[in-house]
């Protein structure tokens, strides 16, 4: 068996829902930990106090800039990890922590929460609240192939991860408004309904065949835009859906 990669779960200001999503891969997670990845850091899961050197850091949650330890740890994560993956809406875009303004008991002065990408460079985004277990799984498998796979597998992993890396480059702000700004206003919407299906709070309906976002309900997780086939559509990868699905299923056997 080929060498495993090392993975850590870094917990910033999040609800642990992302970690639960990772765990929701059930046997799939056990296969990943068995064959492809050693968990070298993770709250409650690995008995390690300080952030170690690792191949992939899965970061959950946004960073409270009034909390010195969080700020220090996220910087340390960037130093220690070859690849930083922002897992979930909070790490990518702030998500509901965007609405935080402090005042909560114990630490009322903790009022400012920033997406990870506002403090360090993030390599890959997995948006959504909670992020989908299967997308986390796919990214884990692809990260393994990228670092330890054959040349062909590395090429595939690069192509697969490219749009998720481009999402990370795109910025740290997300909102249902993105559907208007970057899809409908750009003359690209085809009214397929992917956005509405992806929305975790059911804030999206369709008016005149196009999405209508209830902005009071939108939590800014970024799922709708990332799911839209007109945010990104990489023919070279999606056209191979059958072979890639087989590959991932095979890897988890």
């Amino acid at each position: 068996m080929a060498e495993k990669i090392t993975v850590g779960h870094v917990h910033m200001s999040g609800c642990t829902g992302c970690l639960v999503s990772l765990a929701d891969n059930a046997e799939g997670l056990l296969t990943i930990l068995d064959k492809y990845a050693d968990l070298v850091y993770g709250l409650t899961l690995a008995d390690v106090r300080h952030i170690p050197k690792m191949d992939v850091a899965l970061v959950e949650g946004s960073v409270c800039i009034q909390d010195k330890i969080s700020v220090q740890e996220i910087k340390e994560t960037r130093e220690k990890a070859a690849v930083v993956v922002a897992v979930g809406g909070c790490a990518c875009y702030g998500n509901i922590t965007r609405f935080g303004r402090g005042g909560q008991p114990n630490q009322p002065q903790h009022e400012s929460y920033l997406p990870v990408g506002d403090l360090i460079k993030v390599d890959v985004y997995i948006p959504g609240c909670a992020p989908c277990p299967q997308l986390i799984r796919n990214v884990c498998v692809m990260a393994y192939l990228l670092l330890k796979g054959t040349k062909d597998q590395q090429e595939l992993a690069k192509k697969y991860l490219a749009p998720l890396m481009q999402l990370a480059e795109r910025g740290t702000e997300a909102c249902g408004c993105d559907l208007m700004y970057d899809v409908v206003n750009q003359g690209l919407c085809i009214g397929c309904g992917s956005c509405a299906a992806a929305c975790p709070v059911r804030a999206i309906t369709h008016e005149y065949g196009k999405p209508n976002v209830n902005r009071e309900m939108c939590i800014k997780c970024g799922a709708c835009y990332a799911q839209c086939p007109r945010s990104f559509f990489n023919f070279d990868v999606v056209t191979e859906f059958e072979a890639i699905s087989d590959l991932i299923a095979g890897a988890l056997k």
């Binding site: 997995i126 959504g128 989908c132 559509f233």
Partner: peptide, 17 residues
Amino acid sequence: CQMQAVRKGQLYPVGLR
């Protein structure tokens, strides 16, 4: 386009748990 959306959704299930 809806088939494209379905296949993208299978390979990149952002909000399609």
